[in-house]
Design a protein around this nucleic acid. Structure first.
Length: 416
RNA sequence: GCGAUCGUAGCUCAGUUGGUUAGAGCGCCGGUUUGUGGUACCGGAGGUCGCGGGUUCAAGACCCGUCGAUCGCCCCA
């Protein structure tokens, strides 16, 4: 029989252990801690949804729907899609569960998402995001609260330096339509100067020309009309309320009037927290107000605002978190000690002390493992100690050692 | 989907114009040390050179394909 070839991981997926897993977990832990300061409830939604949930929310942006979603038919013939984002699924849940009764609803979640894209650094086919949404609030204060949350999260992750909040407004529906028409006029008038990609975008998604990376587009983009000239009074007031709220909260921001969202349901605030430390994948948190989305899913007009953050990217930016290490490792010598240690370790663990013990090995081996584990103490239990009702407690940092009564060990450790 | 670079031990890499049994450091395992870790010394395991085909007397090296990674483009909900 031929040797079996071990299957490999699917392209664009990753296995995590050790430091990479600890970084990942630290990002999520921090998110869940900070989210509570802001009164955001947790929410869990399915990884799979009917394809229509995403296809409809994305509208006619053909590339995204046709090329970049993981879709398949299930055994009943229904088209299913692995969620490529959180927002549409959450909006669907909001509608189908009657969560309107909780509005305004501040919710947060995290987990895996799937996009069929070419993998790059910090960009995978199965990737993971943090997500925060406020559904059912039309007030600019909701935008401010959400941005403060994001800002504090970056702060507590220790990556606020080198990251800047870039902010823009797309205005309300009327502002947006007027601006969009003006942009199309402008770009059409300079069609000859545009890059091929941007000529294409002119048909498909004209706002995207504004963040083209092609040098040929720069001059035309430079002279393009700005949103500010097309804002209605209401839209202008809204943006002013957001920015003054941020100022009041002490959140630094810079205006980027070229920052856009491609999809039609976005209104008013659009923002990205951007770093220069990740090459082409510089956005670390992105979001905006999507007042048009829930209607696009067949629901009532419902204002909403949210953001999402790539966990892998955040994990790359943080300092390595403290590694998981036990407080103590037990080192029993001999059969009798082994049995006594089995009881002792259970006691310690029930007392909330992280304790570990090898399954086998002589003293040297066990001491080596204790050292490698990063534990602060080794608890040595031999016949001599047992006879006296004691253990030898060795401090692995400084090498000092003292005897402690068995009965006192848990207390003693809890205090040090 | 497009373009470029890369793929040798668990990890980081060396391997001369194609030429005997493919190397190093780190890590891992064992020993010096059957009641004391980190340091030191000694020893050991581990590779069908990503995979498949081709050229050649001879391929880790050259050619083609494929898979994967990296960087950029497209896209970015």
């Amino acid at each position: 029989m031929a040797k079996l070839a071990t299957p490999h991981a699917v392209r664009g997926t990753q296995d995590m252990f050790g430091e990479s897993q600890e970084r990942f977990a630290h990002v999520i832990d921090t998110f869940n801690r900070v989210r509570r300061y802001y009164g955001f409830k947790g929410v869990e939604v399915p990884v799979i949804e009917p394809t229509a949930v995403f296809a409809r929310s994305l509208g006619e942006t053909t590339d995204v729907v046709s090329k970049e979603m993981y879709s398949f038919e299930d055994k009943g013939g229904e088209s299913i899609t692995l969620r490529p984002e959180f927002t549409a699924g959450i909006a669907r849940a909001y509608l189908t569960n009657g969560w309107q009764q909780h509005a305004p609803m501040k919710i947060a979640t995290s987990g895996p998402l799937f996009r069929y894209e070419r993998p790059q650094k910090g960009r995978y086919r199965q990737f993971h995001q943090l997500d925060a949404e406020i559904i059912g609030a039309a007030e600019p204060l909701a935008d401010v609260e959400l941005l403060c949350f994001a800002d504090q999260l970056l702060n507590e992750l220790g990556i606020d330096s080198g990251v800047v909040l870039t902010l823009n407004t797309l205005g309300d529906g009327d502002s947006r339509d007027a601006w969009r028409a003006a942009l199309i006029d402008h770009f059409a008038a300079h069609r000859a100067q545009l890059s091929d990609d941007s000529v294409d975008r002119l048909e498909r998604n004209p706002l995207r020309i504004l963040d083209s990376k092609d040098a040929r587009d720069a001059a035309v983009v430079e002279t393009a009309p700005g949103i500010d000239d097309y804002l209605t009074a209401e839209a202008s007031d809204f943006f002013a309320a957001v920015t003054s709220g941020l100022d009041a909260a002490g959140v630094a921001w810079t205006r980027n009037s070229r920052l856009v969202r491609g999809l039609d349901y976005y209104r008013h605030t659009a923002f990205e927290f951007v770093t220069n430390r990740l090459g082409a994948q510089g956005t670390v948190i992105g979001g905006g107000r999507y007042d048009g989305l829930i209607e696009a899913l067949g629901g009532p007009a419902t204002p909403a605002v949210g953001w999402a953050a790539g966990i892998e990217r955040l994990a790359m930016l943080i300092d390595a978190p403290a590694s998981d290490a036990p407080d103590v490792v037990l080192v029993p010598l001999g059969e009798a000690a082994m049995l006594r240690a089995a009881g002792l370790i259970a006691e310690l663990r029930r007392a909330g002390i992280a304790a570990d013990m090898g399954y086998k090995g002589n003293m040297k081996k066990r001491m080596q493992r204790a050292d490698a584990s990063g534990a602060r103490f080794a608890v040595i239990i031999g016949d001599d100690e047992l006879a006296r009702g004691e253990v030898a407690l060795k401090n692995l940092r400084d090498g000092s050692q003292r005897n402690v009564a068995l009965a006192q060990l848990a207390d003693h450790l809890a205090r040090t």
